[in-house]
Deep mutational scan, measured.
Amino acid sequence: VSSEIYQWVRDELKRAGISQAVFARVAFNRTQGLLSEILRKEEDPKTASQSLLVNLRAMQNFLQLPEAERDRIYQ
C-alpha cells in the first residue's frame, strides 16, 4: 500500500463531493468514524497493523477503479 493513500482519499472526497461516511461505506464497508481516525493518524503503511493494512488496501483498490465507475457507486 502506498503512503500516498491518505492524500488520495482526501483528493477523492473533494473531487467527488462526497462525505467520509459515503466513502467509508462504499470503499471498505466501514464507518465514517474509523475513516476519520485513519486519516487523522496517517500511520505509515510499512509499519501498520494487519487490520489497518486490510482497510488501506481496500481503499487503494477502490480508488484504482475508473472514475466513472466510482461515481456510479457513490450514487
Rank of each mutant, 00 (worst) to 15 (best):
L35S: 03
L35G: 04
R57D: 09
D44Q: 04
S51Y: 06
R40T: 14
N55M: 10
L35I: 06
L39S: 01
T47V: 12
R25L: 09
E43T: 09
Q64V: 08
V1T: 03
K41Y: 04
A58D: 13
M59N: 01
M59Y: 03
R40A: 13
L13C: 15
V9N: 03
V22Y: 08
T47M: 13
L56F: 01
A24G: 05
L39M: 13
V54N: 07
I5T: 02
R10I: 15
G17Y: 07
E69Y: 10
L34V: 13
R10Q: 13
S3I: 11
Q50T: 12
Q60M: 08
E37L: 05
E4H: 11
I5H: 00
I5E: 01
D11P: 03
Q75H: 14
L63R: 06
R10M: 05
W8V: 15
V22K: 06
V22S: 09
V1P: 02
M59H: 02
N55S: 13
D44V: 06
R70Y: 00
Q20G: 06
V9L: 07
N61H: 09
R15S: 01
G17P: 06
I73E: 15
E67R: 10
A68G: 13
V54I: 13
L35C: 04
E67D: 08
A27N: 00
V9G: 01
S2R: 08
Q20P: 13
S19T: 15
L65H: 12
P45Y: 00
F28Q: 06
G33A: 13
E67H: 08
Q50L: 09
I38C: 04
E69K: 12
Q75Y: 14
P45M: 03
V26T: 09
G33S: 14
A27Y: 04
R25V: 05
I18F: 02
A68R: 11
V1A: 02
E69A: 09
N55V: 11
E67I: 10
A21K: 14
Q7L: 15
R70L: 02
E4K: 13
K14S: 15
R30V: 04
Q7R: 15
D11E: 08
E42D: 04
S36H: 13
M59T: 04
T31I: 00
L52V: 12
L65N: 04
G33M: 12
E4G: 15
T47E: 11
T31C: 07
S3R: 14
L39H: 00
V26G: 10
L63Q: 05
L63N: 00
Q60I: 04
V9E: 00
Q32G: 12
R57N: 10
E43W: 04
L35M: 06
R72N: 07
Q60C: 09
S51E: 13
A48N: 02
E43N: 06
S49N: 13
A48T: 05
S36P: 06
T47D: 08
P45K: 00
G33L: 12
E69V: 08
L52A: 08
Q32A: 13
R30S: 14
R70I: 00
D71C: 02
V22T: 08
E42K: 09
R25M: 09
N29A: 05
D71Y: 04
N29K: 11
E69L: 07
A68M: 12
F62A: 01
A58L: 11
A58C: 12
L63I: 09
A16C: 08
W8S: 15
E42L: 05
Q32T: 07
V9A: 10
L63C: 04
L52W: 03
V26W: 02
L34C: 14
R72E: 15
F23D: 02
R70F: 00
L56I: 05
Y6I: 04
S51A: 14
F28A: 06
A16K: 07
I18P: 02
S3T: 14
W8Q: 15
I5C: 05
D11G: 07
Q32Y: 06
K46E: 14
N61S: 10
F23S: 01
L35K: 02
E42F: 03
R40E: 14
D71V: 02
Q50Y: 12
R25H: 15
Q7C: 13
R72C: 12
E69W: 04
L39Y: 00
R15G: 00
L13V: 15
K41S: 08
F62N: 03
F23V: 01
M59K: 02
V22A: 12
R72Q: 13
I18A: 06
V9S: 01
A58G: 05
A24T: 06
R10G: 05
S19R: 05
A48I: 05
E67W: 05
K46I: 12
K41L: 10
G33V: 08
W8Y: 14
E43P: 08
R10K: 12
V54G: 12
E4S: 10
W8R: 15
A48G: 11
E37Y: 06
S51L: 06
L34D: 15
I38S: 01
S36W: 06
D44Y: 04
N29W: 03
K14A: 15
G17I: 03
V1R: 00
A24E: 14
Q64G: 10
R57T: 12
A21M: 12
R70V: 02
Q75E: 14
V26H: 07
N61P: 01
L34M: 12
I18N: 00
E37V: 02
Y74I: 01
L13M: 15
L13S: 02
L63P: 04
V1K: 00
L34H: 15
F23R: 04
R72T: 09
I18W: 03
L52N: 08
Q64D: 14
P66L: 01
F28K: 03
R40V: 08
E42T: 04
L52F: 05
A16N: 03
S36R: 11
L56T: 01
N55G: 09
R72A: 12
R10V: 11
R25W: 05
A21E: 14
L39D: 00
T31A: 14
K14H: 15
A48Y: 02
S3N: 14
M59R: 02
E42R: 10
R40C: 10
L13T: 03
V1N: 02
P45R: 02
Q64P: 01
D11I: 13
L52D: 08
E37T: 09
E12T: 03
L63W: 02
D71I: 04
Q20V: 05
G17Q: 15
P66W: 00
Q75M: 13
L35W: 05
Q60W: 06
V26C: 07
S49W: 04
E12I: 05
L65E: 07
N55C: 13
Q20F: 04
A48K: 04
